[in-house]
Design a protein around this nucleic acid. Structure first.
Length: 433
DNA sequence: AAATGCGGGAGCG
DNA sequence: CGCTCCCGCATTT
């Protein structure tokens, strides 16, 4: 669709900027939550969207003070990699999620690579003209507006990271037991949480390859119109890549965040339709104003978190198959030689675990499958880092150039039955098997 | 323990 | 002056 095809009202909805005094309130369709907003994107979410309410992102984003209480600004922390650039089984690289808390992050960097025990290092995000990618959120009326962009490999999602930690703990516990039995010195390795799980081959698979249900493995986001309306199904759709937006790479992404942002402001050319993203750009959310509103909504229990019936496992798997889209061809040279992918997912184990942590985006997951449409189209360029990491075949290494974090193996996976992967994944993921 | 959000304050153009 | 980033604090998860 061409911009010209929109009437003035539609243009208003498409041309807003997070900094506008007034944001469009005549939004007919809200967007499905995007876990991995990349390139320059703008989205309008329902104020009832839990993910949006929480200003979530699979990218490791930290709050940044912009001295504007109405607009929440968050900047990307990048990704934690092995300084030795080691490869795990089948060439998988280590991409850990940077801790959001400064203190925790410093602590994290003192830990060792779970795979080779080498030192870890944080690769800062330079997606915005050399500076960290920024996301903006603003609550306004019944909507939550998002604006932002990214350009590097994805780190593991929050859920994955949590899962990994949980797994590590479990491992530690079990190794302690075994140590006592065997008298082996594993416990000493606790410098980094990674160690414990690092010893588990399976872990890697999990971390990298799997997405947790909860982790709004966003990569799978579905953008079909139908999906949008299903707030409660959001997670599900994401996980399963039901909708599948097409994340396109916007040239603007090469610009710095600020410039992009400005560029966007100036041009109302993006076409962003909630479900159908014609022109993805990174986003900023603006729902701040209505925070209370959502809180109320949330309080109403739209999505009860207690609902644990969602199948954790399935989600994880789903992501892959759907991540087909070859990257967003980002031609941008990644400043780091290291592919910043999403941090390994700890969550990988989730599938098997009875809802570790219990808070994995719970709610939505259980969601109605009916409402989801497994579409083959899904996929957004950015896939989950994990997904990427998971390399069924050694030769499937993905090249992380620029922002694109897509791996070739995705292509291969395409066409393969999901079930097949799921099963395999599960097996691989499950350290306890 | 971490994640999140807020806001003071410093540095820079 | 506007913007960004760093840092500490408080609250939530």
């Amino acid at each position: 669709m061409e911009p010209e095809d929109f009437d003035s009202e539609e243009k208003e909805v498409l041309s807003w900027d997070i900094n506008d005094m007034k944001l469009p309130q005549n939004v007919k369709k809200t967007d499905w939550f995007q876990e991995w907003p990349d390139s320059y994107e703008k989205h309008i979410y329902s104020s009832e969207d839990r993910n949006a309410q929480r200003h979530l992102s699979s990218w490791a984003m930290r709050n940044t003070n912009n001295h504007n209480s109405r607009i929440l600004k968050k900047s990307c922390l990048g990704v934690v990699v092995c300084s030795r650039d080691c490869s795990a089984e089948e060439g998988r690289k280590i991409y850990l999620r940077p801790a959001i808390c400064d203190k925790a992050r410093q602590k994290q960097q003192r830990k060792r690579c779970p795979n080779c025990d080498g030192p870890l290092k944080l690769i800062p995000c330079r997606g915005h003209g050399g500076f960290p990618v920024t996301n903006f959120w603003r609550h306004d009326g019944r909507f939550i507006f998002f604006q932002g962009e990214h350009d590097h490999p994805k780190p593991e999602t929050k859920l994955e990271a949590e899962a990994r930690r949980a797994m590590k703990r479990a491992q530690t516990a079990s190794s302690s037991v075994s140590l006592k039995l065997k008298g082996s010195p594993e416990t000493k390795s606790l410098p980094g949480e990674t160690q414990s799980w690092g010893s588990l081959p399976l872990t890697w698979s999990i971390q990298e390859g799997i997405q947790l249900p909860g982790s709004y493995g966003g990569r799978l986001i579905a953008n079909t119109p139908q999906q949008k309306s299903l707030n409660d199904s959001l997670f599900f759709s994401k996980s399963y890549c039901l909708g599948g937006t097409t994340d396109l790479v916007d040239p603007a992404s090469t610009l710095g965040p600020t410039k992009l942002y400005e560029k966007c402001k100036l041009s109302s050319s993006w076409i962003y339709n909630s479900g159908d993203l014609l022109h993805p750009v990174s986003g900023v959310f603006s729902d701040y104003d209505d925070r209370q509103t959502w809180n109320k909504n949330t309080a109403l229990g739209r999505n009860s978190l207690n609902d644990n019936r969602c199948p954790n496992y399935p989600f994880a798997l789903t992501s892959w198959p759907y991540d087909l889209s070859p990257s967003q061809n980002s031609s941008e040279p990644f400043s780091q030689q290291i592919p910043v992918e999403p941090p390994a997912a700890e969550s990988s184990c989730h599938p098997l675990w009875p809802n570790p942590g219990g808070d994995l985006y719970e709610e939505k997951v259980h969601v109605d499958f009916n409402s989801c449409y497994p579409s083959t189209t899904c996929h957004s360029r950015q896939e989950d880092p994990f997904l990427l990491t998971y390399t069924p075949h050694p030769h499937h290494q993905y090249s992380l150039t620029g922002k694109s974090s897509e791996w070739d193996f995705n292509e291969e996976m395409r066409g393969m039955g999901l079930d097949h992967y799921n099963n395999e994944m599960l097996l691989n993921l499950c350290p306890l098997r």
